[in-house]
């Protein structure tokens, strides 16, 4: 039994190594620069179900086809909250990922979403987002969608959804809640094609408000 298992495992490992190495020939780690890590302030009472365990080490590099860059940088953003409480929506794609005051935009309470217009169709490999990383917080009902339709009525692909009870109305999600850190959240977009990226959230473990420091979309234009 044991020996057989070992053999099966070994074959699996060899297969995996083969797959990874062969794929790596055309894939490169994306060039992702992380902001400075800071946790300050009095910790708040956090009691969040379905919480993902921290990895306990740095996130492994994410591989994407050569030439993949952050195509969201400087692109225009729209939001359900046209007059943010503090900051401006443009901060979401301004390249500033620091935790400091003045680096984030604060949107109103309850469900809000922002939409990034990449300007043209792109193959999207990953979305990396930082809501807020000055304190350990969890944002609720994080839903990320990609579409060709600015209204998000047709051809909508959901690449992340941790709204387990569909309280934000985008369907039941299976992803886990996660604690915000300077590493941000990297979501695999599997090379999906689209021009618009939309991100939902519904408050966080500290208050009902929604924040964005930065959203990066790693992709390549469709030629």
């Amino acid at each position: 039994m044991t020996r057989k298992n070992r053999i099966v495992c070994m074959i699996g490992c060899i297969g995996l190594v083969y797959c990874v190495t062969s794929a790596a020939q055309s894939l490169k780690p994306i060039d992702l620069k992380l902001p400075k890590a800071v946790f300050t302030g009095t910790p708040q009472n956090m009691n969040v179900p379905n919480l993902e365990k921290p990895l306990g080490k740095a996130r492994p590099p994410f591989l994407a086809p050569e030439g993949t860059t952050n195509v969201a940088l400087g692109k225009s953003v729209s939001s359900t909250d046209e007059e943010p409480i503090i900051g401006e929506i443009e901060m979401i794609t301004d390249g500033d990922k620091e935790a400091a005051e003045g680096s984030y935009v604060e949107l109103g309470p309850f469900v809000q979403h922002v939409t990034i217009d990449l300007g043209s169709d792109h193959h999207i490999y990953a979305v990396v987002l930082w809501h807020f990383h000055k304190q350990p917080r969890v944002y609720f009902d994080v839903v990320i969608q990609i579409s060709d339709d600015p209204e998000f009525t047709d051809g909508v692909e959901t690449i992340f959804n941790n709204d387990i009870d569909n309280s934000s109305g985008q369907g039941n999600g299976k992803d886990k809640h996660y604690v915000e850190t300077a590493e941000g959240k990297l979501v695999d977009a599997r090379g999906l094609q689209g021009r618009y990226v939309r991100l939902y959230s519904r408050g966080n473990s500290n208050n009902d408000l929604n924040h964005y420091i930065e959203v990066e979309v790693y992709g390549k234009p469709v030629l």
């Binding site: 400075k36 800071v38 946790f39 400091a100 005051e101 003045g102």
Partner: peptide, 13 residues
Amino acid sequence: RAVQPDLGWPEKY
């Protein structure tokens, strides 16, 4: 408490 940098502020504000 862990090391923390001093608090900054957005210049324009």
